[in-house]
Design a protein around this nucleic acid. Structure first.
Length: 563
RNA sequence: CGGGGCGUAGCUCAGCCUGGUUAGAGCGCCGCGUUUGGGGCGCGGAGGUCGCCGGUUCGAAUCCGGCCGCCCCGACCA
């Protein structure tokens, strides 16, 4: 490709409203342009990156037996009513009517569609297992699109769906996707990890997410050697806390106006972890429940919801005053509500609210002084340990997820088969997503430097940017033309900067766009017989460059060594 | 949905508080010349319904009201 005829609108300054690095650089480099909130166009160079990512994903899903197909974005609402998601999802699902007034939706994923097709076509156990997938636009009316292409309302996703006879078959399909996904993210050249994740409200029996660590990430991941989990579900050993000596019985202390853990701990000269924090919540089946965690810990609402087995809301102040005690001074002792005690609260003497104004209790011992049930409901903190190793918590972008659906969709949509005994059985399903746009953004975030983007070679828009100096007609420019043809002939993707621009401008643009290798042909190259070669990652000059004679061979060899 | 901010040339912004010639700058763009290994220089030029609608006023980019759009933080994210 010749840069002189490429639609590559670059900008010297980042757009005023761009905060995230990938957002700034992808716009500046001419890869993407915004059309509306959460709506982005991919310009030619950006689309090449997207397509390269798509192709890698396609190859690896094909390799585990996936069969590519395509399903519509516009769908009858009836399907979604049958699966129960039409009402369950809420305003994130785009809903519209066709000219006859029929309810339609814009699909946010394709479980319903694919399940209906399989339900119609699959009859026998002999038709299973099956992996179907497609790359298709997803529509989600996100409450808050952000950071360029990181969180948008319309995006392309690879989603595959596995169909198996039984849970063992599902596990096998799931494991095959793990193999494929691990290979995909390795090939893409990203830093990544696979983490345990929440299965969400729609049920299912297991899930992992593929996370790319980077500053603009919206998720938090807890990491230790041989451990990686989304903070939403992470569990770890709490750091120990020094507790005061026990008392024969709990006793009152006056704490006028001290309503926070910090204030009470400071007044009593105790670490915050020597207090217990009460967090009253209300759920539909259980009603009011007092969740109790160590004073220096926080409740993890997702873990709590999973422990409760149903959604909950924090109790209102009037509910607390009425049923328990004055807000700010509540505690489990004598409270007429069930207590759910966090696993990290070890036996010992704690300080709690006394359920009376301006009063706390000390020497409170769980079990002796109040009954409780147990669950792991706290958010892990940096420094907690897993197998003795302290964890760290990092931001990351979710670039893929794999999910055991079980019979969540096959049931309501009637996807069944006849087993060897002629008995009708539900099909066991899994679903597996990958977002190419997020992968592109994550790669930008992970490898960019002060000059611009530095693509991993697997997904760079071009392999090589060839900078031709001098005007058309000069020997150095003509030499660049020759090299351009040679490199293209051996199958490299070459972007030839043949513009009549100053060298500085060409170099700056090349570094902004971030192709892995830059070759420069000017008078110097003709004089020395060596072409300068700069490796984009780290802006390293390749020692001695590459020879002007036999360039293609030398470049191909250099190319293989690049990240 | 709650909080904050922004909307003036292709981009980044000034002007608005305190209304008043023909609305400005830098970059980019076009032409000519020059330069050619890190966004060089000179001369000339094009480009704006000041987001939209209404109001106040002799007069509105500027003041007032409504609407629309966009960004950030939070909530949310099957």
């Amino acid at each position: 490709m010749r840069l002189s005829s490429l639609f590559l609108p670059t900008e010297r300054q980042p757009p005023a409203d761009a905060e995230a690095l990938s957002h700034q650089l992808m716009v500046r480099a001419g890869l993407i342009r915004q059309l509306g909130s959460g709506l982005w166009s991919w310009l030619p160079a950006g689309w090449r990156v997207h397509q390269k990512i798509v192709q890698i994903v396609r190859e690896e899903i094909d390799a585990i037996g996936g069969q590519e197909m395509l399903m519509p974005v516009l769908q009858p609402a009836e399907l979604w009513k049958r699966s129960g998601r039409y009402d369950a999802i809420g305003p994130e699902l785009f809903k519209l009517k066709d000219r006859r007034g029929a309810d339609m939706v814009l699909a946010m994923t394709h479980e319903e569609a694919v399940t209906v097709h399989v339900a119609q076509a699959v009859r026998s156990y002999r038709d299973l297992p099956l992996i179907l997938y497609h790359f298709q636009t997803k529509e989600r009316d996100e409450p808050r699109p952000r950071a360029g292409v990181l969180r948008t309302r319309e995006f392309i996703m690879k989603d595959s769906y596995s169909f198996d006879r039984d849970p063992e078959g599902l596990q096998a399909s799931y494991d095959r996707h793990i193999v494929a996904y691990d290979r995909i993210f390795d090939r893409l050249g990203l830093e990544w990890y696979r983490v345990e994740s929440d299965v969400g409200m729609m049920g299912g029996s297991g899930a992992h997410e593929y996370m790319a660590p980077c500053r603009a990430g919206e998720n938090e991941v807890a990491l230790a050697p041989a451990y990686a989990a989304n903070v939403e579900v992470a569990s770890a050993e709490a750091q120990p806390v020094e507790l005061p000596a026990g008392l024969a019985a709990a006793e009152e202390v006056t704490t006028p106006g001290l309503t926070t853990v910090e204030q009470v701990a400071a007044r009593l000269g105790l670490p915050e972890g020597a207090l217990l924090k009460a967090f009253p919540v209300v759920s539909e089946r259980r009603g009011l429940v007092m969740v109790v965690v160590r004073g220096d810990h926080r409740v993890n609402e997702i873990k709590l919801q999973n422990a409760l087995g149903e959604p909950f809301r924090p109790a209102r102040e009037d509910e607390i005053s009425e049923r328990i005690g004055p807000p700010g001074f509540i505690g489990p002792v004598g409270a007429d509500v069930p207590v759910l005690l966090d696993d990290a609260v070890v036996p010992g003497a704690y300080v709690t609210g006394a359920n009376r104004p301006d009063t706390h209790l000390r020497g409170v011992e769980p079990g002796r002084d109040f009954p409780f049930s147990r669950a792991d409901v706290r958010r892990v903190e940096p420094g907690d340990t897993v197998d003795g190793h302290p964890i760290r918590i990092e931001p990351a972008i979710e670039v893929g997820n794999i999910f055991k659906l079980g019979t969540r969709y096959s049931g309501p949509l009637g996807a069944t088969y006849l087993d060897v005994n002629g008995k009708e059985q539900l099909i066991w399903m899994g679903s597996y997503g990958i977002g190419p746009a997020r992968i592109a953004a994550a790669a930008v975030e992970q490898f960019a430097d002060e000059k611009g983007i530095s693509w991993p070679k697997a997904i760079a828009p071009w392999d090589v940017e060839l900078v031709g100096l001098g005007k058309p007609g000069t020997p150095e420019f003509e030499a660049a033309e020759v090299i351009y043809r040679e490199l293209t002939a051996i199958g490299l993707d070459v972007l030839f900067d043949d513009r009549p621009a100053n060298p500085g401008e060409k170099f700056a643009d090349a570094e902004l766009l971030g192709c892995p290798l830059r070759l420069t042909i000017g008078k110097r190259a003709l004089e020395s017989g060596r072409i300068e070669a700069q490796v984009r990652r780290g802006l390293v000059e390749h020692e001695g460059g590459v020879p002007l004679e036999g360039t293609a061979e030398a470049v191909a060899e250099l190319w293989r060594s690049l990240p």
